[in-house]
Design a protein around this nucleic acid. Structure first.
Lengths: 347, 347
DNA sequence: CTGAAAGCGCTTACAG
DNA sequence: CTGAAAGCGCTTACAG
């Protein structure tokens, strides 16, 4: 039993199949009565146009493929969710293709396979592999991208969206300094650039306040990697505040710190990045910067759609603003350890 | 600049385009020298067959669409990851379509839109919406499914994979009882059936041991819903052990318990389900049942592929076994509160 | 306003 | 072993 075709509908409606095509494509020159007749037949037979045939004819596939280094880490996964929602609402099919490594050959292969005639692309470029994939996309392919915060605005002709990491990291760092901490340590997630804007925002806030700038600890994305960094921090009595590149890192750090007998926030304050669903329920609940990747994913799809519809100016819709969510993993600078009243207090 | 077609390759190789088709389809009757000639042209021009044309011709699309109620909860997300990996390795494109609700109309629509001529389907049916989607798939569509543990084996002609929830829950419950707990409370995640096999395994273990069977607490999937249940447990001094339907629930429960001043495992033991990446790094590290959804996703794809290739018998490969991971959120039954030595001890 | 024709890129019987 | 023909379902200029 072959699916219903345009010819079946035509036969049922008593018109030629070209007329059916015009109806389903909202062509203006169809008599209203004819249109209704055809529409009735379409509904009756449950006709769905064959995507492959449309694409072969050179039409748009109304599909996006999301090219991403990952599908399980929070940011990627939330972005994918937002894209899927927006795409589905627009009647687009969504594909997913993981870029496994940053080897040039594999990146090129992943990009080539993600491109289908008539289709479009969204690249999630939050690390090296993603950024290389973005660069490998041929210029004539309809696409949009979620990128790491650029140092300078790339201009309106780049169909890119991002979150303001620099501002967000600055805000979190300043908050920690306002609590009395002398400085803030930083745990970096991988970046496609030598220093991410997230890291730049942290450094900038420290420098503005005249605070010393500790060497950032280079981590991965996972709790395990935060755990390792947490051990380093636990052995440094000077460390009283840490900003972590994501909440998973913060989770690992907190575990290492707590295990080493350091109290949070009694001895050391911890701030994360993302506000994953778990963060509110950690003990202590995690202070973190909320990053709405799902909304950003929706914005990215909107940008893609605008490009496909050849709107002259790409819409610079409001992208979500990062927001510092203060919970219980942060507190004032602890009193000096094991000492009685300080000299200053005694004066 | 139009993509390279079979005709371009033919011209470059000095053969007819039909011969090119034979080469790319591994047709036996092509002279070796001709094959090499054509292959060289293919490599040279970077030819990639047009999927749409193949599909239109009635061929296989070599694509899967994953029909799922969700893309962000751990089990779904890990399953999707496994499917994507396996599909990519097999040269399949993967699509994702979320079934937003369990309303019959919307389920039917989601299924209809996920089906493309030549394509195939994987349904993740771990809740009501997914199960309805599975039932709505027409019988002649190539597909496989990840389902909730069935009460009885549905037989080898159903292309379904699952994890043994009953056994897993039984194992976790027995472990808790072996620690001396008089009974184990249960926090249920949503199920497509009235009582899931996960719940049945828990109940069975309790009954075998002659332990009382408390009413299960019906929860959702999220930490927040576990948090609410945790409040209930915190106010019940008899509750000394809980088995949670997933790790997110366990996270919320632990937070509520800890906030209420109950020690874990000092006052109450908590066990989760899933072994998400966070679980090892919670404080205390969570004892949980490891469920390898990524591997199950790979197995599901393998099953789909076997069906597509019309292997007579579907392979009953080994599906991953649940494994109890004992960490620090579980411990012995606490001594009775605020009492001195018991009479028994005094004898 | 509507119908007949051509063609998108491919595969598969049919000739040779 | 290889080439010429037909046709998958659709859209779009071209007639009428």
């Amino acid at each position: 039993m072959r699916p219903v075709s345009i010819r079946d509908v035509a036969a049922a409606a008593g018109v030629s199949y070209q007329t059916v095509s015009r109806v389903i494509n909202d062509h203006p020159s169809v008599r209203v009565s004819t249109r209704e007749l055809v529409q009735a037949a379409i509904d009756e037979l449950g006709f769905r146009p064959n995507r492959a045939a449309r694409v072969l004819r050179g039409g748009p596939a109304r599909s996006v493929t999301v090219l991403t280094p990952n599908t399980s880490l929070y940011g990627y996964q939330a972005a994918l969710q937002g894209i899927e929602e927006a795409a589905r609402a627009a009647g687009f099919a969504v594909g997913v293709r993981v870029v496994e490594s940053a080897l040039p050959r594999e990146v090129a292969d992943a990009v080539a396979r993600a491109i289908e005639p008539g289709g479009s692309l969204i690249v999630i470029a939050h690390d090296k592999a993603g950024t290389m994939a973005l660069q490998a996309v041929p210029p004539d392919i309809p696409m949009a991208a979620m990128v790491e915060t650029p140092a300078t605005d790339p201009g309106p002709d780049r169909p890119w969206v991002w979150l303001d990491d620099r501002k967000a990291a600055g805000q979190a760092t300043r908050y920690l300094l306002s609590l009395g901490h002398r400085t803030v340590h930083y745990l970096a997630i991988p970046s496609s650039t030598r220093t991410s804007q997230r890291q730049a925002g942290w450094r900038e806030a420290l420098e503005e306040a005249g605070a010393p700038v500790p060497a950032p600890l280079q981590c991965g994305w996972t709790p395990r990697s935060g755990y390792a960094a947490g051990h380093v921090l636990a052995s440094d009595p000077e460390a009283t505040a840490v900003l972590c590149g994501n909440d998973d890192l913060a989770l690992g750090v907190m575990r290492a710190l707590l295990k080493a007998g350091r109290a949070i926030p009694g001895d050391i304050s911890v701030v994360g990045f993302d506000d994953t669903p778990m963060s509110e329920f950690l003990t202590p609940p995690l202070t973190t910067v909320r990053l709405d990747f799902a909304e950003l994913g929706r914005a990215c799809f909107a940008l893609l759609l605008a490009g496909l519809e050849r709107k002259d100016a790409l819409p610079r819709t409001r992208w979500p603003e990062p927001e510092l969510i203060i919970r219980e993993s942060t507190g004032p600078l602890p009193a000096p350890r094991g000492s009685g009243p300080t000299r200053a207090a005694g004066t």
